[in-house]
Amino acid sequence: MDPEQSKDSNWKEVVGLADGTDKVAIYCKESDKEAWTEEAEEKGYPSRSKYLYDLVIEGQRVRETDFFDKPGDSEQNEELRERINELHDEISRLKGSPDGDPNLIVPDLVLGELSEEYRTHDELVSSILDSDRIENHVREEVEDILYDLIDADRAEYQIGHGWRHVPEGDS
Rank of each mutant, 00 (worst) to 15 (best):
Gln76Arg: 15
Glu140Tyr: 06
Glu168Leu: 14
Ala155Phe: 01
Pro167His: 08
Glu156Thr: 12
Thr65Leu: 03
Met1Asp: 00
Val56Lys: 15
Pro107Trp: 02
Gly16Leu: 14
Gly100Gln: 07
Gly169Leu: 09
Glu64Ala: 08
Ile128Ser: 04
Ala35Thr: 14
Arg83Glu: 05
Asp101Ile: 12
Asp32Trp: 12
Gly59Arg: 15
Glu116Met: 10
Asp153Ala: 09
Trp11Leu: 01
Ala35Gly: 06
Asp2Met: 07
Tyr27Cys: 07
Tyr157Pro: 00
Trp11Ile: 01
Ser6Trp: 14
Arg61Lys: 10
Gly160Tyr: 01
Pro107Arg: 12
Val138Trp: 04
Glu156Gly: 06
Asp132Arg: 14
Asp73Thr: 12
Pro102Ala: 10
Arg48Gln: 01
Tyr51Trp: 12
Ser31Asn: 09
Lys70Glu: 05
Leu109Asn: 09
Ile57Cys: 10
Glu75Leu: 14
Phe67Ala: 00
Glu82Cys: 02
Asp151Asn: 13
Ile134Asn: 02
Leu87Gln: 06
Asp130Tyr: 02
Val110Thr: 08
Leu104Ser: 13
Ser9Glu: 06
Leu111Asn: 07
His121Gly: 08
Tyr45Gly: 00
Arg139Thr: 13
Asp69Thr: 06
Gln76His: 03
Ala152Val: 02
Glu117Gly: 04
Asp132Ala: 11
Val15Lys: 09
Asp144Leu: 14
Glu64Val: 00
Tyr157Ser: 01
Leu111His: 09
Glu116Cys: 10
Glu13Met: 08
Glu141Pro: 03
Asp151Arg: 15
Arg93Ile: 00
Gly96Met: 11
Pro46His: 11
Arg63Thr: 11
Asp144Pro: 03
Pro71Ile: 04
Trp11Tyr: 06
Met1Pro: 04
Glu141Leu: 13
Ala155Ser: 02
Glu168Trp: 11
Glu78Val: 14
Gly59Ser: 13
Gln5Ser: 03
Glu141Val: 09
Asp2Gly: 10
Arg139Asn: 12
Asp148Ser: 12
Arg154Glu: 07
Tyr147Gly: 01
Asn136Gln: 15
Ile91Gly: 06
Asp32Arg: 11
Glu135Leu: 11
Arg81Val: 08
Glu41Ser: 05
Glu39Gln: 07
Asp101Ser: 13
Tyr157Ala: 03
Tyr45Thr: 02
Val166Thr: 12
Ala40His: 03
Ala155Gly: 00
Ile26Cys: 07
Glu75Tyr: 09
Ala155Pro: 01
Val24Pro: 04
Leu55Gly: 02
Gly44Ala: 07
Asp122Tyr: 03
Leu109Phe: 03
Asp69Gly: 08
